[in-house]
Design a protein around this nucleic acid. Structure first.
Lengths: 174, 174
DNA sequence: GCAAATTTGTCTACTTGGAAACAAATTCGC
DNA sequence: GCGAATTTGTTTCCAAGTAGACAAATTTGC
C-alpha cells in the first residue's frame, strides 16, 4: 500500500526524453505521479464525483445542493445571521448576500433586522420555506443512506469520521 | 462515535416552534443536524478548507492549482489528448479548451494535431513549460508533506487510502 | 464623549466553470 | 461505398463564486 517513493514524493516528470509509450487514450490509465498521494487533489476529485452522483440521483427534483443546505441550517438555527452561516458553510459573504436575496425573493426566507446589532440581519424560514425543506429533505439525504459502491459500510463510516475530524465539524471543543 | 439516530438520519428540523436559544453568534456552534453525517457535505467543506490552506501556504508563488495540475499531468503523459485529460481531472471539455489555450498562449504547452485522428490534438510541455513545472513542484506538493494538524500521520494515510478507493484513483482494475 | 478601528452586509467588476449548439473528423450500419 | 450516428474540440452565452471597495453600525482606546 505504501508508495515506491515513501513520503518524499516530489518526483519530477522524466526531464527531456519522452516515454515512448502511446499517448494513453484511456483516462484511467494516465500517469498522475505524486498527485495520487495529494490530499488536496483527492479531495477535489472526490467532491466533484460526489456532486455528480448527487445531481444524477436527484435529477428533476429541482434541488440545488447549496440552496438546500442553507435552508436546512436556517431551519435548525432560526435567527442565525448571514455572516455566521457564510463562515460555517464556507461561502463568501458577498456570495451569501446574493443567495439569501434569491431565497427571500422566492419567499422561502424572512430577513428581519437584528435588534441587538442594527447592522445584522436575522434569518428564518417562512412557512413556505419550511415546507420546501420538509418536501426535499428525504431526496437530499438519500445518497448518504446508500453510500458509494466502492467502499464498504465500515470504510464509509471511517471516512466520514476522518473527514469530521479533518474539518472540525461533528466534534467541536468539548 | 455512532450518532444518536443511527444511519436513518433524515430528521427534519423541529416544525413550527423555534428553539428559544439565542441565534448562535459563533459559527462552530451552529446546529447542522444530518449534514454532519453527509459524505457530500463533508467532502465539500474539506475540499474548500484544503484549498484555502493551500493558497495561504503558497501565497505569492503565482501558482494556480488547476493550471499546475494540468501541466504536471501533461508532463507525465506527453502526447495526451485534451479530452482524456479533461475526463481524468474532472474538468469539462469546454473549460479545458479555454485552459489549454491560455497555457498555449503563455508558451507552456504545445498543441500538435494527432496524425491518427485529425480531430484530436496532442499536448506536450514546451521547454518553458517543463521549467515552469520543475520550478513549482516543490511548493505545490509541500502541503502534502506537512499534513493537516487535526489528523495524525496514520490517520492521514488512512484518509488518503480511503479517498483513493472512493475515487478509484491510485488503484485501477488489476 | 469621541475619533479610530472593526464588523456586517452590500455592490460592482471580474474569474472560474458549465450547458448547449456547432463544425470537422471518424466510426457504424448496411 | 455512403448516409447516420458518434466523437473531438470549439464557441457563445449564462451561472457560480471571488475580490475589493463601500456605507452603516458597532466596538475600542483614550
Amino acid at each position: 500500500m505504501t508508495r515506491p517513493g515513501g513520503s518524499r514524493v516530489t518526483v519530477l516528470p522524466a526531464p527531456g526524453r519522452e516515454p515512448q509509450a502511446p499517448p494513453a487514450a484511456d483516462p484511467s490509465s494516465l500517469a498522475l505521479g505524486a498527485l495520487e498521494d495529494s490530499l488536496g487533489f483527492l479531495l477535489r476529485i472526490a467532491q466533484l464525483q460526489a456532486f455528480e452522483r448527487f445531481y444524477a440521483a436527484v435529477a428533476g427534483h429541482d434541488l440545488r445542493a447549496g440552496a438546500f443546505t442553507i435552508l436546512w441550517v436556517i431551519g435548525l438555527n432560526p435567527g442565525v445571521r448571514q455572516g455566521v452561516l457564510a463562515e460555517r458553510l464556507m461561502i463568501k459573504r458577498a456570495h451569501m448576500a446574493k443567495l439569501i436575496r434569491a431565497l427571500e425573493l422566492a419567499g422561502l426566507v424572512a430577513r428581519t433586522p437584528s435588534r441587538e446589532d442594527r447592522r445584522a440581519v436575522e434569518l428564518r424560514l417562512t412557512p413556505a420555506g419550511r415546507r420546501h425543506v420538509e418536501l426535499r429533505a428525504a431526496a437530499f439525504f438519500a445518497p448518504d443512506s446508500a453510500p458509494p459502491t466502492s467502499l464498504s459500510a465500515a470504510e464509509t463510516r471511517t471516512l466520514i469520521g476522518l473527514l469530521r475530524k479533518l474539518t472540525g465539524i461533528g466534534e467541536e471543543a468539548p
